[in-house]
Nucleic acid binder design. Sequence first.
DNA 1: GTTAATAAAATACAAAAGTATTAAACTAGA
DNA 2: TCTAGTTTAATACTTTTGTATTTTATTAAC
Lengths: 319, 319
Amino acid sequence: MLNDESTNPGGEQLRARIAWFYYVAGLTQQEISDRLGIARARVNKIAGQLRADGSVVVDIRLPLLSCIKLEEQLKQVFGLKSVAVVPSADDDEQQRRMIGDAAGALLDVLIQDGQCISVGWGRTLSASIKQMRTRQLKDGSVVSLMGGLTRGSETNAFEVSTELAKTLGADCYYVTAPIYCPSIESREILLTHSGVNEVMERARRSDVAIVSCGDLTPRTKLTTIYSVRERLPELKDIGAIGEILGTFLDAQGFAVDHPLNQSVIAMPPADLKAIPNSILISGGLYKAEIIRAILSAGYVNCLVTDEAVAERLVRLAGD
Amino acid sequence: MLNDESTNPGGEQLRARIAWFYYVAGLTQQEISDRLGIARARVNKIAGQLRADGSVVVDIRLPLLSCIKLEEQLKQVFGLKSVAVVPSADDDEQQRRMIGDAAGALLDVLIQDGQCISVGWGRTLSASIKQMRTRQLKDGSVVSLMGGLTRGSETNAFEVSTELAKTLGADCYYVTAPIYCPSIESREILLTHSGVNEVMERARRSDVAIVSCGDLTPRTKLTTIYSVRERLPELKDIGAIGEILGTFLDAQGFAVDHPLNQSVIAMPPADLKAIPNSILISGGLYKAEIIRAILSAGYVNCLVTDEAVAERLVRLAGD
DNA sequence: GTTAATAAAATACAAAAGTATTAAACTAGA
DNA sequence: TCTAGTTTAATACTTTTGTATTTTATTAAC
């Protein structure tokens, strides 16, 4: 019936129509496929994608008292400006979706016209950015906080920065370098050339920094890089418990003395302290340690995490 | 596990947790019932309610080109300030859900601190208000535009105003009278007494008016009232095609000369013209006629409707 | 024009959601 | 303490959803 205009243009109009019918009107997938004259399997696939890619966003308008309480406690204990706590899930991807949902909402209000937003990378940040509302930031810019992976993926530095810039309608500056250099010397060469230093300087002057962190288990993306994985035992030996911006930290939040930390191409964590709004977005109980280290060191002033982590952070704070 | 605190308090915390797990994390209802230690059927029921009562709101972030085009055309043709067009559905309830979704979003940005919001009633308005975000309006007030039904229902004047006032965190003023008086004389008595006049005067000075409209078929709530239903033939005979604020209009948008129009307790449609923002929220092709009449008369300056109606309005405008 | 590659439709089936019914637990009032 | 009324759990069953497989169009390159 409405096929000429609705099903064809780029598939985008079809997606929009399915979004309305399925998520707002509540039609069954069968009804939608009948009306639009396409296979039900296709409706099913698209309906799934819409949620995953952030085209359909859900907003929970019921406060969870236990989470609100933890938010207040964390603000107090670590002197944070803003904290969001979401329920815990035992599956990592589910957890990322919930944290991303809350982080997206937080960033929506935090980011203003004329600001420069610096951003790390990882699956959690990728999920958060997908939940943000698209807008046209006046004089906004996005700048990468760290080098990327050679091998492309959705969660790579370039993709995450690009996605964020697109969402905000802002220009994007990339750290065109690998996250770890093969040697300390090659790092020097890269920094002095190729404009990497200029971009890092720009990141240092950003208004909002969005970062995640990793522990030393294979659950963290960074540890899947070969050059990191093979040195995990060394790192653990000298007291490292995780990383932020590719820099490995000990339990007090200090960078450990290790070649990897000397060869990393990223803003040093300590420089985050100079940025007005620095948000750590990270959840999962196995990351509680490194999150605690980062908060103790005062690298960030905003936090988005899950209930179980928040509980442990509050409990350990008594020590 | 988390039962003490999460399942008990008023059921509200349980609802919040289900909302997160089901709509954000994407757990199955079985997984949620296991984790929370309650029956799956209960999770199923609550998950359904959450959508229906506006605790979980979905936001479609894909523009429908055909609808945007119609919005622009309608603005032009009828000189409207703001128009929202959503896809059409053949089921009335689905249609109301979609229109309510769009209307809620429009009202969210339109309503400001310090404003007085006047509101009619009906199923469409009820659905719209449920989609609005709850907030604490500074010095805001809500006032009813018309009398209610004796028999209570979710879509009655008192319920709709109350709900809106609660959502906005505002005071509420009711028109404590039936929508139609048994006689013209009793109307006079009611108006001069019982503060109804004062409330109507307040409505006249409101900043935003939210209204719906009805046609003369049984699909419209108003026509199910006995006193209206039995006089439908008369109304049709003298050219009435529908109503706004309980006042029956002809195709040009003028109030018809009929006892019902003399006994109605509501603000006259013409007074809407003096209100800075007046929003007509109504969809369904069978209402196209009356919507057209209202727009032609210039009673409102904002419109939320569906695609099929919008198309017809634009097409008929050529005549 | 033929062919490989891709996308969509058709089909079938297992998992999950929705719904009704009955049994059990709980609550408020006598 | 009992009883009527209400809420929740347990169960069974139907519809809808998610997914894999095969077949049929469509497209692009040769």
